[in-house]
Amino acid sequence: MTHKDIKLVAIDLDGTLLTDDKQLPQANIDAIHQAIQAGVQVVICTGRTLPGVREIMAQLPFDGEDDFLILQNGSVTHRLHDLEIVDQVTLSREAREVLMDFARVFDEEGAQLVAFDQEGMMLVSQYEANKLVVSDSKALSTPITPFTADEFLAFESFNKAMVLAEPEILDALKDRLPSELFEHYSTVRSQPIIAEFLVKGVSKASSLKNLAKRLDIEAEHVMAIGDQLNDLEMIQWAGLGVAMGNAVARIKEVADVVTGSNEDAGVAQAIEKHILSKGKA
């Protein structure tokens, strides 16, 4: 593939567009602006919720009525200018029941269940939020709302759920997940401390496919950039899959190319090389 083929760029946030201290390098802002000016569609694809991206999106040069935003690892897609939901999935009652049974077992081991709708972060635990949940709440600019098990089962608007725990706890839980969970969920380790539970079949790739279809753009004309396992499917699906220099090994294995790290504005490097450089030939 050559850079002249790229019509849509999908970019992860944490560990990709943002530095480790959650800053947005000016080089990345400038490169996105130039890509948009060159007629390329740019979409942010993140595991974050809406409150957790507002401050970042305000720094990016999106101003068109046909800009979009993919959140919660593909569970929700918004039209950016008015935040209209154009695509979303929610957890079924049966899926919530299965997950609740699992969460009850491991709550005492320090693995806490949280679930998200558009604006909220609900903690389903017999304990106060652990330090990882508190930290995630701050990162997402979303206060924690305690939910009982009954409230979790009655609530119809959850887009996804997560279990947060220290890496060694999640490592141990991985082999103990009941098979019934996988009948209802796609699971992904989005960070060492986070295991995510999405509606079965949902990923960043599934929403990116739907968006590309809406925009009449084929996969071969899409570039996807990411660093973690929740980026894997979209990097595999895109015509040009780009791994960050700081990406986990599996992402580098499936990607077509590797760019610089998030600390070195690797997103800007990828956009420059595969999109903008054609104007300098």
Rank of each mutant, 00 (worst) to 15 (best):
E168W: 09
V9P: 08
S125D: 06
E128I: 03
L99D: 09
E109I: 06
T16C: 09
L60H: 04
T46Y: 06
L13Y: 12
Y127K: 12
Q269K: 09
E180Q: 14
A205M: 01
L83E: 15
Q26D: 14
D67N: 14
L215M: 08
L208C: 03
V222F: 01
N230V: 02
I217F: 06
L99E: 03
L60I: 05
M234T: 02
R93K: 15
D14V: 02
K209Y: 00
T187W: 07
S125W: 04
A265H: 02
K213I: 06
D20P: 12
L181R: 10
V258E: 15
Q88D: 14
V242D: 09
T145P: 07
K278N: 10
N28Y: 01
D256R: 05
E218F: 01
E97N: 14
V254C: 12
V248I: 13
R214G: 00
L232E: 12
A103I: 09
M244T: 13
V248S: 06
V124P: 03
D82T: 05
E218G: 04
V267D: 08
A243E: 09
A154R: 14
V242A: 03
S261Q: 11
D107L: 11
T46M: 03
N262F: 02
T16L: 05
S141M: 12
I56W: 02
N262I: 02
T187M: 12
V98P: 08
D66M: 06
A115G: 08
V9F: 02
R250M: 11
F68I: 00
P178T: 04
K280M: 10
D216Q: 13
A103T: 09
E151I: 08
K200S: 07
D14P: 10
A31L: 05
E156P: 15
L140W: 09
T90F: 13
V202D: 00
L80Y: 13
S203T: 13
L60T: 07
E233W: 01
D227K: 03
K213Y: 07
Q88T: 01
M234S: 05
L18K: 04
A139C: 09
R176N: 13
L170A: 03
A195N: 13
L276Y: 06
W237E: 01
V242F: 06
M1K: 10
G120N: 14
L91F: 04
Q37C: 07
K213R: 11
Q72N: 08
T148C: 00
A165E: 00
V254F: 02
K4V: 13
F106Q: 14
G110I: 06
Q72D: 04
D256A: 07
S203F: 02
V134N: 06
V202C: 07
D66C: 00
D107S: 15
G226Y: 06
N210M: 08
D87G: 10
Q236G: 02
P143A: 12
A58T: 00
G120H: 11
M244A: 13
A247E: 01
N210Y: 07
A224N: 07
Q236A: 04
A149N: 07
V105Y: 03
T187A: 04
A243Y: 10
L215D: 00
V86K: 00
I36M: 03
K160M: 13
E218S: 10
A10H: 10
V248F: 01
W237S: 00
E168Q: 12
H81D: 15
V202E: 07
T259S: 15
